[in-house]
Each structure stands twice: as structure tokens, then as C-alpha cells.
């Protein structure tokens, strides 16, 4: 997994609340292998109409924001389905950080496993940031995970992220490798647990 330490890039505002994973990646694309290019169908039904024409008012279709690497979203971004392909779609489009007042729990977890930062900023500050970008679309925004700050010009906000996600992103840790270090503990746990909770093993039907 690619580390996330610091990023300076253009940011696209997408401020309506409750953009769920069905909006990020509609279910009909879930059978696509990642190699087919999930980035091209990111926000498909928001970005395009039923005939496949671009929706002019959708922010990511604005010339300046097409290559944004940061999204400034509304409350409850990525709630709903557990589909990790929603994160693949964001990442493969080129998004590396989403800033929002809150995120769906499963999306945040999936994001961390793929090097995508979900940064929590209070509602008022997120709105202020979105307004600043709307005023100056090409404004470079810097996200610093070590210092936990989001900044542009002379403004700087502190953002929240749980320490587990932070350490994983900063180190680019691979969960499987980490778990391998605990192989002995797993075996000890398993042996003890089978005695303590014999009912937890399914009986043969």
C-alpha cells in the first residue's frame, strides 16, 4: 500500500450531505474487475445523465477540478454499502484525500487499506474550506497527515483521524504482514478458545 504523508493539490467541493457508496459507485459496476478502470465510472449517475452526457453542474466536471486529488465533501460521506470498489473508484480516478464532517465507518476503514485519507473537519470549517475553493477553484490545498493539518494561503485547520488509521497510512502498513508477526499468539488463542467456547465451532449439519 502507498503511504500517505503530505499532499498539495487542487480540491473539488462536493458538499451535499449523505453521498453514499451507491452514488460513489452504482451497483451495476460491482461486477467489474478493478483492471477495467473503475475511475471512469466514479459518481457515474451524478457525473453523467442517462445518455452518458456530462452533467455540466457537477463540480468534478468543471475544467479546473477534473484533476483534483482532494474532495471536500458534506456530512456522512460514503455511508451505506460496504463495497470497497467505491474506494477503488475514488483512488483510480486520482483522489487521494476526502475531507468531510463525517464518514461512513466502513468506507473509512476501506479507505485506509488503500492509501486514501479520510480527514474529519468540523461542519463549519469544512463549509468554509468549500467556500474558499468555490471562490478560487485552482487554490492549492495542503493536507499534512503528520501534523494533522489542512491548509491554504495563511489558513490552517486541524483535522481529526483515529490514531489507528493515521499510523497505518503514514507507514503504508500491510495488515497481512502485521498479522504474521502475531502468528504464535493466534495459535495460542485458538487452542485456548476451543476449550473455553466449544459451542463456537459449528456442528456438522
Amino acid at each position: 500500500m502507498e503511504k500517505f504523508v503530505r499532499l498539495t493539490a487542487k480540491a473539488c467541493p462536493l458538499t451535499q450531505p449523505n453521498i453514499n457508496t451507491d452514488q460513489i459507485l452504482p451497483a451495476r459496476y460491482l461486477k467489474w474487475p478493478r483492471s477495467r478502470g473503475l475511475g471512469q465510472v466514479l459518481f457515474q449517475d451524478l457525473r453523467f445523465d442517462a445518455e452518458g452526457r456530462e452533467q455540466q453542474n457537477f463540480p468534478l466536471n468543471q475544467p479546473t477540478w477534473r484533476d483534483a486529488k482532494i474532495i471536500v465533501a458534506g456530512r456522512n460521506f460514503g455511508g451505506g454499502s460496504s463495497r470497497e470498489a467505491a474506494v477503488y473508484a475514488l483512488y483510480d480516478y486520482g483522489i487521494r484525500c476526502v475531507i468531510a464532517p463525517s464518514f461512513g465507518d466502513i468506507l473509512s476503514q476501506n479507505a485506509v487499506k488503500n492509501g486514501l485519507l479520510t480527514a474529519v473537519l468540523p461542519e463549519v470549517e469544512a463549509a468554509e474550506l468549500a467556500a474558499a475553493i468555490a471562490d478560487d477553484p485552482a487554490l492549492p490545498v495542503t493536507v499534512d497527515l503528520e501534523r494533522q493539518t489542512i491548509s491554504h494561503d495563511n489558513l490552517s485547520y486541524g483535522f481529526a483521524i483515529d490514531p489507528v488509521s493515521r499510523s497505518q497510512l503514514l507507514n503504508g502498513w500491510d495488515d497481512i504482514d502485521l498479522t504474521e508477526n502475531h502468528r504464535d499468539q493466534i495459535e495460542v488463542f485458538k487452542a485456548k478458545d476451543r476449550l473455553g467456547r466449544p459451542w463456537a465451532i459449528p456442528t456438522t449439519a
Binding site: 470497497e84 487499506k113 498479522t179 502475531h182
Partner: peptide, 15 residues
Amino acid sequence: GIGASEVAHVLMTQT
């Protein structure tokens, strides 16, 4: 509920 990377982790380690 978990995502695909976590499903893979559980398949491989049961943890």
C-alpha cells in the same frame, strides 16, 4: 460488515 481487503485478511488469517 467489512470491505474486500478485510475479507481477504479474514480468509487468510481468520482474524
